[in-house]
């Protein structure tokens, strides 16, 4: 008898738990439908998230930065006319970066405009940071687009992905400064 009561009590508790999840889930989905920052439901990631689209404040033009993966990055770095930019803070760069990357910290961009302006506009530029959400590298890439660099790419998976693949990491400042 006692076991039966216990079983019914557990069953009732589980039913209530499921009811809470269903009720709250439905409320969440309804609120999301009218939310200004709503998440897009569906099988595919939204385009803006996949390509890092952003509007150019000055022209209203939609800027897009193409994301590349590690194998694309390696093949591009093996070729000519590519500059790799590390958007993280100098301390993080010194602690470890992708070989031949130049440090252009997004947070201190103002100090680096002259360095950026010395790069020919037709040279391909790849930006990276630690890894997803990789906002600093994405912002740097957008800024480069606005500065009229013609080929700007984003290594979105960043240094986390590079390290996970046990690729070479270089420590210290640029050119042994």
């Amino acid at each position: 008898m006692n076991r039966r009561v216990q079983f019914l009590s557990s069953k009732s508790m589980l039913i209530r738990a499921v009811l809470i999840i269903i009720a709250c889930g439905i409320i969440g989905l309804l609120v999301n439908a009218f939310h200004p920052q709503k998440v897009r439901l569906g099988f595919h990631r939204p385009d803006s998230s996949a390509t890092g689209a952003q509007e150019d404040d000055s022209t209203g033009e939609q800027l897009q930065v193409t994301r590349i993966d590690r194998s694309q990055l390696k093949s591009l770095l093996a070729g000519p006319d590519i500059v790799l930019l590390d958007a993280r803070i100098p301390e993080a760069y010194i602690a470890g970066h992708i070989p031949d990357a130049i440090n252009i910290p997004w947070d201190m961009l103002g100090e680096y405009y002259s360095a950026l302006n010395s790069i020919p506009r037709e040279i391909g530029i790849i930006t990276y940071c630690d890894g997803p959400p990789c906002e600093t590298a994405e912002q740097l890439a957008m800024e480069l687009k606005k500065l009229n660099f013609q080929k700007v790419l984003l290594y979105y998976d960043g240094l986390d992905d590079w390290k996970a693949a046990r690729e070479e990491i270089r420590e210290g400042p640029e050119h042994g400064e």
Binding site: C24, G28, K38, V39
Partner: peptide
Amino acid sequence: ASLPWVELG
């Protein structure tokens, strides 16, 4: 969309 509302509930 739903998890935060479950936490809130």
